[in-house]
């Protein structure tokens, strides 16, 4: 689905990504995780072409991602960021449908898609007339997800989508997100710094440190077969959450 080979990125002479090879499997949820500054967000932004790699190639569905085709290819990707990235001057409705209207979808098609998405994300239809400032943080993320899913993208990229929410809402939304991902069977790439969230949502976890991939595998791979001592260190640092997750699973 998405393939990065030999991709590196440097900002102001500081390397944020050493040459990285990564393949995002189709129909699965891949979580990019690691401490701050490890390059996980950079990796995600490279995938949607918001930044260009200094070296290497990003491939989407077998095609090289270039500045020329980026606008076209992005329409097959959904993107959600931490605070939602909703346009404050547009209502929730207009935020969700802006691209569809640009593409000339007719009103009927837009309306029926909105109903589908409202059901999926459990966002009330009568809330669509509100502006982002009139919505709660959780509602904003639901609208942001609706916007990302509007064009029925092949892949959804999420950059710390729940990062700005308080813990209660966050845990509700984690469960909802998992249901949504499962029901859609879409390819999902998500960035988080929370290992519990990563284990809960991710089929595959990519742990990064200082611009390189330390280990890629399932949560149990990371716990039981750490590739290097850092993996265990990182896991232990977030142990309490994992314990809670273990209790819930047993």
């Amino acid at each position: 689905m998405i393939e990065l080979s030999g991709v590196s990125k440097t900002y102001d002479g500081i390397s944020v990504l050493s040459p990285v090879d990564l393949e995002i499997p189709i129909g699965k949820t891949t979580v990019l995780i690691g401490p701050s500054g490890c390059g996980k967000s950079t990796l995600l932004r490279l995938m949607i072409g918001l930044i260009r790699p200094d070296s290497g190639v990003v491939r989407f569905e077998g095609m090289d991602l270039t500045p020329e085709n980026a606008t076209q290819l992005r329409r097959k990707m959904g993107y959600v960021i931490q605070d939602g990235g909703l346009f404050p001057h547009l209502t929730a409705h207009d935020n969700v449908t802006i691209m569809a209207r640009q593409l000339g979808w007719d009103a009927g098609r837009i309306a029926s898609r909105l109903v589908e998405l409202g059901d999926l994300t459990r966002f009330p239809v009568d809330g669509l007339g509100r502006y982002p400032t009139q919505l709660s943080g959780g509602q904003r993320q639901r609208v942001s997800l609706m916007r990302a899913l509007m064009l029925e993208p092949d892949v959804v990229l999420l950059d710390e989508p729940l990062g700005a929410l308080d813990p209660m809402i966050r845990s509700d939304l984690q469960a909802e997100l998992r249901d949504i991902f499962r029901s859609l069977k879409k390819t999902v790439v998500m960035v988080t710094h929370d290992l519990g969230e990563a284990g809960f949502l991710g089929d595959s976890i990519v742990l990064l440190r200082e611009g390189r991939i330390v280990q890629q595998g399932t949560i149990s791979d990371l716990i039981h077969h750490p590739a290097e001592p850092f993996v265990t260190q990182f896991i232990n640092a977030q142990r309490s959450l994992l314990t809670a997750l273990g209790d819930a699973n047993s």
Binding site: L73, R74, Y79, I81, Q82, G85, I98, M99, Q102, R147
Partner: peptide, 12 residues
Amino acid sequence: SLRESAEALGLS
């Protein structure tokens, strides 16, 4: 974040 959101949507 807003500028990039617009770009990520695929708007020209």
